[in-house]
Amino acid sequence: MAVCITCGTDCDQSFTVNWNGRSASFDCIECLATMVAPTCHHCGCRILGHALRIDGRQYCCDHCAQARDHGASPAANAERWQFGDRPIKSVPGE
Rank of each mutant, 00 (worst) to 15 (best):
M1D: 04
V3G: 01
C4D: 08
C7N: 14
G8Y: 07
T9W: 03
D10N: 13
C11Y: 04
C11G: 02
D12C: 00
D12R: 01
Q13D: 10
S14W: 03
V17H: 04
N18T: 12
N18V: 13
W19A: 07
W19D: 08
N20S: 07
N20H: 03
G21H: 08
S23N: 11
A24T: 03
F26H: 00
F26Y: 13
C28I: 05
I29P: 00
I29T: 06
I29H: 07
E30K: 12
E30G: 06
C31G: 12
T34C: 08
T34N: 12
M35G: 00
A37Q: 10
C40S: 07
H41E: 13
H41T: 12
H42N: 15
H42P: 01
C43K: 06
C43S: 09
G44I: 07
G44P: 09
G44D: 06
R46P: 07
R46F: 11
R46W: 09
I47T: 05
I47F: 05
I47P: 04
G49K: 01
G49N: 06
H50M: 06
H50L: 06
H50C: 01
A51C: 04
A51G: 07
L52M: 10
R53M: 11
I54F: 09
D55F: 11
G56M: 05
G56R: 12
R57G: 01
R57M: 05
Q58D: 12
Q58E: 14
Y59I: 11
C60G: 13
A65E: 07
A67S: 12
D69F: 13
D69W: 12
D69C: 00
H70Q: 09
S73R: 08
S73W: 03
P74L: 08
P74R: 00
A75N: 06
A75P: 04
N77Q: 10
E79Y: 05
E79K: 13
E79P: 00
R80K: 15
R80L: 09
Q82H: 07
F83I: 11
G84K: 01
D85T: 05
P87W: 06
K89M: 09
K89L: 14
S90G: 08
V91N: 12
V91E: 13
V91K: 13
G93W: 09
G93V: 12
E94V: 14
E94A: 14
